[in-house]
Amino acid sequence: MPQDTKSIVKAIANGEEVGSHIHKALDDVDPILSVENFNLHYGEKQALFNNNMVIPSMQITALIGPSGCGKSTLLRSVNRMNDLIDIVRISGDMKLNGESIYDPNVDVIELRKRMGMVFQKPNPFPMSIFENVVYPLRISGERNKARLEEVCERSLRKAAIWDEVKDRLDENALGMSGGQQQRLCIARAIASDPEVLLMDEPCSALDPIATGKIEELIHELKGSYTVLIVTHNMQQAARASDFTAFMYLGRLIEYGPTSDIFTNPHLHDTGEYVSGRFG
């Protein structure tokens, strides 16, 4: 397919409406999450413009784009973390397994329990490794020790950190290295068997070796979890994800299978961005 050479960057600068270019491959996926006409304002400033996309189930979807393009904002809108910011207003909706996320009757706390979230900076809680992992169960009132221990071991194994910490589960989590802390946070995010795992640049605060381990881990999670990951790192998106969405200034520009986006993008701007010539 020939590349569309018309510059979307220029079109946006000229104030033109631009649509999203969504690949055909996404028409027949099994969606777990769908974004419908989603707009978001921080006070007066609009951060997301009429986003429409579907996230395929049990696949890894990466959100890429230059700084300030709204990819983190979009991710945080999925589990309504933006509710915590007073000045945020939204319109449009998102649906998780067909159920509305932004319906006024939705219990935000129950909604967040159905998703796991991993943040940019590792943020373990000031408590033992064990308590960190079972935190989502604790807040749901789980007291059965055997069940807690079972979940702890399973989550830590899935997060590929069990062998490193199994002998010091009672130690404070803040004493671990940065990479270990981030894997602990992933273990915590998957402890309650979430339907979607949201990752907000999970490797940006880590050294290359720790980054490699996390990427490997993300790869292993494929098939058991739906992962939506925001990343700054093009190689990471290329290596780890199945689908990639390119965003620019709050608009979804191009969305398709990762291999296509990186080797055969339909839009000229996408090609420029993934090859590092702009952004």
Binding site: N79, M81, L84, I109, E110, L111, R112, K113, R114, M115, G116, M117, F119, K121, N123, P124, F125, P126, M127, Y135, P136, R138, I139, S140, C185, R188, A189, S192, L198
Partner: peptide, 26 residues
């Protein structure tokens, strides 16, 4: 740190659970 509060909310904790289990001890 706000990141700790967000981490707790992200796990599906309510405001009071976050305060009681994370913010106050810290």
């Amino acid at each position: 740190p706000n990141s700790m509060r967000e981490g707790s909310y992200g796990c599906g904790a309510s405001k009071w659970q976050t305060i009681w289990r994370i913010v106050l001890p810290r």
